[in-house]
């Protein structure tokens, strides 16, 4: 499954990204960052808010260009993957189109790519994310958790090579979030797409990922990489083990050092 000897799915080489602010100052979001995501690997990027982790993900999606350094996806420029409609993405704001039904929202990537809609594929995903019976509902009739399920299904519908998840459950309450994590773990295990998840929730990162990369506060850079030792498929009970708790504590300490050096 995870094969890190082959060309990585996502490769960052010394990437720096700065933005020119309206007042003329420069904001450096990422500085000299190198990291990679292997084929079929699930990597979680953990960091405090404003550490540039979303910028990192936007670079992979071709929504931003690096100021220096190089980003390669499947060995090519991110734009090529995007143009070939091989990228799946889900945002914290679900970005569903309110005038479309659940089914139409999930079918959208087919229409954007100009491909015939694969009805069985769409229905299969609707079933997989547990929305059977809600095909004709509109986003505003759904709960926050259900909307994110639609967004996840939409990100998977074209069987992308790369899946980008930008805090997809960040706006959900703790109970729904935990439930969505369990479901995402199950859904992901069926496809094993190379995935980059951006989050600031330590438990979420540990439960979902093969590897957790911790970024420092602004400007962001990699401060720690942790191989997650839990075997797949993962049962939610994993989150109750002593080892899980210990890793949560360790990562939380890295994220927010108690000696006051961080913030």
């Amino acid at each position: 499954m995870t094969d890190r000897t082959a060309a990585p799915a996502i490769d960052f080489r010394g990437v720096t990204k700065s933005f020119r602010l309206p007042d003329g100052k420069t904001l450096t979001a990422l500085t000299d960052t190198s990291l990679s995501v292997g084929k079929g690997e699930f990597v979680a990027l953990l960091g405090p808010s404003g550490c540039g982790k979303s910028t990192l993900l936007r670079l992979v999606a071709g929504l931003e260009a690096p100021s220096s350094g190089a980003v390669a996806v499947e060995g090519r420029a991110p734009e090529e993957l995007v143009k070939a409609h091989r990228l799946g993405i889900a945002f914290q704001e679900h970005a569903l189109l309110p005038w479309l039904t659940v089914r139409q929202n999930i079918e959208l990537p087919f229409r954007i790519a100009g491909r015939p809609v694969m009805r069985e594929r769409v229905q299969g995903l609707i079933n997989l994310v547990g929305l059977a019976g809600f095909e004709a509902a509109r986003p505003k009739q759904l709960s926050g958790g259900m909307r994110q399920r639609v967004a996840i299904a939409r990100s998977l519908v074209l069987e992308p090579e790369i899946l980008l998840l930008d805090e997809p459950f960040g706006a959900l309450d703790a109970v729904t979030r935990r439930q969505m994590n369990v479901e995402l773990q199950r859904i992901w295990s069926e496809s094993r797409i190379s995935t980059l998840l951006v989050t600031h929730a330590v438990e979420e990162a540990l439960f979902l990922a093969d590897r957790v990369i911790v970024l420092s506060g602004r400007p962001g850079k990699v401060v720690r990489t942790l191989e997650v030792p839990f075997a797949r498929p993962r049962h939610p009970d994993v989150m109750r083990t002593a080892q899980f708790h210990q890793l949560v504590d360790e990562l939380t300490e890295t994220l927010h050092p108690t000696d006051g050096a961080g913030h």
Binding site: R58, A61, G62, L63, V82, K83, A84, H85, L87, I89, F91, E93, A95, L97, L108, P109, R111, I112, A113, G114, L164
Partner: peptide, 23 residues
């Protein structure tokens, strides 16, 4: 249209006309 909707269209590889008519 919201910034996230436009970002989504860009990440899905939508052309200008596709984005105009879909979003």
């Amino acid at each position: 249209s919201s910034q996230t909707q436009r970002d989504l269209m860009a990440a899905l590889g939508a052309s200008g006309t596709k984005r105009f008519f879909h979003v």
